[in-house]
Amino acid sequence: MDDMDVKLLKLTQDGIPLTPRPFADTAKSLGISEEEVITRLKKMMSMGIIHRFGASIAHRAIGIIANAMCVWDVPSERVDEVGRIIASFDEVTHCYERLRSNKWKYNVFTMVHGHDKGECRVLAERIAKATGMYDYEILFSERELKKAGVRIE
């Protein structure tokens, strides 16, 4: 990772130009070759700095309107096993273990998506059956207040 990599990320993070040769146009603004842009992007992908290079979709625009956060109280010794089972569900996009606190007993967080709230509820119940974890809550999103990509400043 050098300064040129950072410049390249900053220049492309809000979207590449929609032209036949977007990387050549990007290269021009950076004063390097098209080939170098492509090589650097591939390198950052293999390093995992770029998680994915592609389109970000507004799910609401395609009818995926119900998004629910399901939180589970999972005994620490079963977290790995339960996390893996939950992650295997296609409708689950995110699954994390998070720090418990005295204000919040749930430690496993999952994002589930569906066309409506009912679909999300059915899915949560299927997950409960598959894992044996019935102590959970579903927090539906009432409103999207912000959604942006991770940016570097």
Partner: peptide, 12 residues
């Protein structure tokens, strides 16, 4: 508004 952007998804 179906696509927000095409670019790198960065792992901070």
């Amino acid at each position: 508004g179906v696509i927000r952007r095409i670019g790198p998804i960065i792992d901070i």
